[in-house]
Design a protein around this nucleic acid. Structure first.
Lengths: 190, 190
DNA sequence: ACCTGAACACCGTTCAAGT
DNA sequence: ACCTGAACACCGTTCAAGT
């Protein structure tokens, strides 16, 4: 039977894309060409519609970027949970591998974006809970929050600098990473 | 006497602006309205010329952003040198104060930018040498580089997250900062 | 109900023409 | 020698019109 949403008797236009497809296209464009490559026209072309059609599914470009950022936050959470058994050093290495695999998405999480594009911070906190659990065990419940902030700040800063090439002027980046996490674990022990 | 550069006898047009003025205008726009506010037209308007005239002094917008980033790197170096007497904790606090005072400029140094806009990394290394000197004293010359990378990564990540609002969900941000620098200094001692 | 072409405002950038 | 208007290509976004 015909849908009640049909216009006077005809068939409604079938959907030619979906939010999921749009977000996937946006992520792919972002990773391959940086933020400048993530244009509404490029996304539309990749999913087989014209740019104005995207506005049926996303409010605007900033909102699309935010959706991409939040998908990336969930991915990061998956990686951290998968590494939780390996302790704080294991999670730090998983974080680093994640940033290497999705550098553009990584910068969406921790970079500087217009208010509208920023991922929900409560969700970020939720996805990084494995770190909080590890620091609670290490530093004790009173200092778990400060310790988690110290570790996440270090990991985040290290990856920003590494991806920006700021560590390319000598020395081993891997050594510096292992040195850092070892010193932090040692220092945070209660 | 007339300049040899004069066109058949007339006076050359006097300069109506300068690179310094352009960079200052760009920094002001960046700090007050973010990267989106740093348009060639807005810069031109602020220095009293039309946008095409800017191309006499800067190659393009990316190059202007790079110049702004490098001016900011030098400013950061000034702040670090001024705080060198206060040791690593003092320099960390100076770094934080600098980021608070110039959040947009700060993101130009450590954020993710197109290749053309990135500040020279060798200059960044030079301006952060006070940190290297402090960590050399603390951790010993063999580990000075790794120790400096650990501290700068932590400070950079802390400020990125603080400015993004990622620490607004409970606890004292000041406490977390002091906790972090204290633990780091302790951990890096040889 | 979804999609599109056309249009608009706003960018960065080039260039011939002015003085 | 420097500055400008006009032009071009390219964005994001809106909207009336198509099916």
């Amino acid at each position: 039977m015909a849908s009640v949403h049909s216009y006077h008797g005809g068939m409604p236009t079938p959907e030619r894309t979906s939010l999921e497809e749009i977000v996937a296209a946006a992520r792919a464009l972002l990773e391959s060409g940086g933020p400048a490559a993530l244009t509404m026209q490029a996304v539309a072309g990749r999913v087989g519609v014209r740019a104005p059609s995207l506005y049926k599914r996303v409010r605007n470009r900033d909102a699309l970027v935010r959706t991409v950022a939040e998908a990336t936050v969930r991915d990061l959470g998956d990686h951290l949970r998968a590494a939780e058994g390996a302790g704080l050093p294991g999670m730090a290495r998983a974080f680093r591998a994640f940033a290497h695999a999705h550098p553009a998405g990584y910068h969406l999480i921790f970079g500087w974006l217009p208010e509208e594009s920023r991922p929900d911070l409560a969700e970020l906190a939720r996805q990084t809970e494995p770190v909080l659990r590890a620091t609670a065990e290490l530093a004790g419940p009173d200092r778990a929050l400060e310790a988690a902030r110290t570790v996440t700040a270090w990991a985040n800063g290290f990856l920003s600098m590494e991806l920006a090439g700021a560590f390319n002027l000598g020395g081993s980046v891997d050594d510096a990473f292992e040195y850092g996490i070892a010193k932090l674990v040692e220092a945070l022990k209660k």
